[in-house]
């Protein structure tokens, strides 16, 4: 399979955006792409251990996600890592704001990245933001 670099920036805490980001990450990763996910702002707190698995919906489709058998976004992110070798990095700035350490985050996340590191990694990648 042709390998492309895909960088996904997730800043939103809304259900639709987290879901779409997770779909891109998982399908992208299992299709042989080198997928990097950078979690910042309102997205990061969902990746704290014992965090809520559901996020507030923005609209109609988001509300349907909860009612139908749609794979939960956290499961898709985890499958992106386990089945497709995606790398998910928490943003060090958001961690500082939230006052959390790497140990407080889900174990399938990588060590925190700053923006400089993310930008240099994303320089030759497709970049998607949610």
């Amino acid at each position: 399979m042709a390998s492309n670099k895909i960088s996904i920036v997730v800043v939103s805490g809304s259900r639709e955006r987290l879901q779409m980001a997770a779909m891109m990450a998982s399908v992208g990763a299992v299709s042989g792409n080198d997928v990097t996910v950078f979690l910042s702002m309102n997205a990061l707190s969902y990746f704290l251990k014992d965090a809520s698995e559901t996020a507030p919906a923005e609209g109609e489709v988001g509300a349907m996600i909860a009612e139908k058998n749609v794979p939960p976004f956290k499961q898709l992110f985890q499958q992106a890592v386990e089945l497709g070798d995606a790398k998910i990095y928490p943003c060090s700035m958001a961690m500082d704001l939230l006052g959390v350490e790497a140990d407080d985050l889900d174990p399938y996340l990588q060590e925190p990245w700053g923006l400089t590191k993310f930008l240099s990694h994303a320089a030759d990648a497709q970049v998607w933001s949610f």
Partner: peptide, 18 residues
């Protein structure tokens, strides 16, 4: 059956791998 995209694909890939 009953699962939405990309659920069926991910289930297939997990089984294919093993």
């Amino acid at each position: 059956r009953g699962s939405f995209c990309p659920g069926p694909l991910m289930e297939l890939i997990a089984k294919l791998k093993s």
